[in-house]
Structures are given as structure tokens and as C-alpha cells.
Amino acid sequence: MSSEYLFAHKHILGLDHLSVPDIEHILNTAESFKEISGRSIKKVPVLRGKTVVTVFFEPSTRTRLSFDIAAKRMSADTFSISASTSSTTKGETLADTAKNIEAMMPDIIIMRHPSSGASNYLANRISTSVINAGDGTHEHPSQGLLDLMTVKEHKGKIKGLKVAIIGDISHSRVAHSDIIGFSKMGANVFVSGPATLIPKKIAHLGATVCRTIEEAVKNADVIMPLRIQKERQNDPLIPSFREYASFFGINRQILQIAKPDAIVMHPGPINRGVELTPDVADSFQSVILGQVTNGVAIRMALMYLVIGGA
């Protein structure tokens, strides 16, 4: 990294807004922070005296805990608010919620929200740093970054790798951030899944669409099945989970057409037996828990950088 580089983002809203040097800088920072989580005293004073508020309008276990742990390992004071799904007919508006939180002078607001663009909306209205922890079907930047970090860790590089993302691309903010992030960093991203779950214009984000999962997985370095979201099944996009598992599930057999040293990733939570068989999820090729570990480091880096860390 050149000495003139300056990380100039006050908010982290999506990978779409980050440049290649930005992403490299975040990954490098996270790599240097990762070691902290391995210490017996897992705390550094970097964010001492800073206030981090997490606001989740959607349920989450992993992401929320990860942000919370990351903030605490940096010595920040953390507070969290859970809100049921925003309603315009009752209760407070999002702008009011945000302004009320802002009035208590936090340094960072981390938000998950069911509406795409909700973090952009917030960032346009308040002066506190906003980190998007997932907005609708738009982006989930910290997940995209931890995926990049994990691949880089295992493969030593990202450029030139074949990355296969399988499943519900339409409703996955993780897929959107990953497609943007991996293609930005020079990987070749292939997507496959039921055509009802592949957006017609996804190629414009940098992905190649494959009709069959075999085409996507063949010689892949990275395989990432996405969670089939059971809560979306009132909109009949696939005939059944059984059929999905047999045509689009990742199992031993499919794994054999990938590169022998291919890694299997998953943004979690896994529907075992649907998008991923248990033996693959638990195999030596699976780096799913490594992703979770890296998630803490990425979130430490993001919080550090948005409030002006170098």
C-alpha cells in the first residue's frame, strides 16, 4: 500500500462504493487485527471511549454477535436495539429512530434492515458513521469482505480464481456483495441455481450465469452454496426442497468436479441436507467456521477505519 493511500469512507454501505485499494486496505487491516482474537487477553484499547450501537430490524445471531464481539475486543462500549420490522403505519419512522440514537452521541451505528437502501437512507440523514449489516436484498458488505478475506487466506490470492455461487441469487444480499467484491478483485464469478432465483441482469454485476450447477462448479476454486430462505417459500419459486437438493445441492459428487483443493463456503445459517449435505459441510474442504472467525476481524477493521483509523 502506498503511503499516500487514505481510507476516506465514513460509512460502509456496500462493496459497490469501495475501490480495489479500499478493499485491499480493509483486508490488510483485518489480517493484522485477527491475531487479537487469539490472545488470552482479547482486548485492545483502539476504540476506548467510543460508543457503538447496533440496531437490528431483522433477526440475526451470527452477524450481531460478531459485531458486538468485534467492538468489545476494541474496547468500545456497545449497545443494541432490536426493533420489529419497520412499519410506516404504526410507531416511529426510521429517520426518527436514527435521529434519537444520534442525539445520544454514538460514534458508529450498525444497522440491519429489511428495506434495500435503508443504510443509504440513514447515512444521508445523520452524521454518525453507518455500517450496513445487511439491507434488504441489496448488500451485506461485512460478509462480502470476510468472504474475500477467507479466500485470500486459503488461496493466497483472489485474482484469477473461479468462484461458484449457487442458489438464491435474487434474494441474497450476500450474493450481491460477493459478486461485486470478487469480480472487483479479479476473480471469475459464476452463478447457478433455479432460473427463478437468478436475476435477469445479474451479468451486469460481473457474474457469468450457468444453466447447470456442474458448469458453474467445474474446476472451481471456491464453491459457495447460499441458504435457501424457507421464509420466502410463500412465493413459489422452487417446487420443493427435495427437488432443489437433488439438482442444486452441493454434495460429494458435485465437489469432485471442482478443483481438488477447492474450498466450500457458506454465509450461514445452513439448511443441512438442502443446499449442502452434512458430510460436505463438515469436510476438510469446508472453511465455514473460518469465515465466522474472520468475520470478527473484518468488523474490527471496519469500525476502526470508519472512525478515522489509518
Binding site: 434495500s116 448488500e139 441482469k201 451486469h204
Partner: peptide, 15 residues
């Protein structure tokens, strides 16, 4: 749906 279906809606994650 919230906007025209196309490249921009895909990028913005809008139906």
C-alpha cells in the same frame, strides 16, 4: 416492485 426491472434494480437490490 419498487422500480424498473433491470440493471439498476439488480444493483440496488430492489424488486
Amino acid at each position: 416492485g419498487a422500480m424498473n426491472e433491470g440493471v439498476v434494480s439488480t444493483r440496488m437490490g430492489l424488486r
